[in-house]
């Protein structure tokens, strides 16, 4: 791809293009085998799921500890700021420099991609866990301690359930970013739905580029919506029949990639 390619564009009103896209989706060859939509979707989901899980395992306990003990609070700020400043596009290539392409691994489990995606998912989970836990009403905690609850019981019985909507919100933000950025794994030869876009760029197949982009966009939106529902489900009821309002998150991290 070079400047000379920038001449290649079409008219919005051109009817042929959208029928090409429909034909692409209708072609049974694009739904079969390891290069088909279902296998690429599964690769995308495995890659994203493993990364969000790994990031949760790392970030949840740390966020809980910092939120509960109020120690090392600057760590959260630093991680949040650093996570915002480092471009995920560059992070993937840095990971390749350190870990290599890892071509012996399955297309969904290339170490460089998993490493970069995990790092990307840590800041929102860490920040939200910390903010959720430290934001629990001190009077409530005082009352619980006065009733003789141990620190562990306070964390499990009070802080975690009250922070659950925010923690889930952090996992949702992380998951949406990871699903988005997993598209870039195709740039380093990994799998996932990004392959359709990247291969389309390489061969100049506009219909495939468009179809791949539609699939990626759809998956990102579905991730956002389904995890949003899950977030609502974990919000504790504070009064009978009325759910506690889920705090409206303000975006701190970007759409990543």
């Amino acid at each position: 791809m070079g400047p000379e390619d920038s001449e290649r564009h079409r008219d919005m009103s051109e009817p042929g293009f959208f029928s090409e896209v429909v034909e692409w989706f209708a072609d049974p060859l694009h739904w079969e085998g390891s290069f088909g939509v279902p296998s690429r979707l599964v690769e995308h989901l495995i890659m994203s799921g493993v990364s969000v899980l790994a990031a949760s395992i790392l970030a949840l306990p740390v966020g809980m500890y910092i939120g509960h003990s109020r120690r090392l609070e600057t760590l959260v700020v630093s991680v949040a700021n650093l996570g915002r400043a480092i471009p995920s596009f560059g992070l993937i290539f840095l990971a390749v420099l350190v870990m290599g392409l890892g071509l012996d691994f399955p297309a969904s489990l290339r170490p460089a991609a998993l490493f970069a995606l995990t790092l990307l998912a840590i800041p929102p989970i860490l920040t939200n866990t910390y903010v959720g836990i430290q934001g629990v009403d001190p009077d409530t905690l005082e009352a619980a301690r006065g009733m003789g609850l141990t620190e562990g019981q306070v964390l499990r019985g009070l802080e975690l359930p009250l922070a659950a909507p925010l923690i889930m919100g952090g996992i949702r933000t992380a998951a949406v970013q990871v699903v988005a950025t997993a598209t870039l794994a195709a740039v380093i030869g990994g799998g996932g739905l990004g392959r359709f876009i990247l291969d389309g760029f390489a061969t100049g197949d506009d219909a495939q580029i468009f179809a791949g982009a539609l699939l990626v966009a759809l998956l990102a939106v579905l991730t956002e919506v389904s995890l949003g529902l899950l977030q609502r489900a974990v919000s504790p009821r504070t009064s009978p029949g009325r759910r506690r309002e889920v705090p409206e998150p303000t975006p701190v991290a970007g759409p990543a990639a």
Binding site: V179, A180, T181, F210, G212, A213, V216, A217, A220, E224
Partner: peptide, 10 residues
């Protein structure tokens, strides 16, 4: 919510 590469590709 739309991933950037997807938006550019669209």
């Amino acid at each position: 919510t739309i991933p950037s590469l997807a938006l550019f590709a669209l």
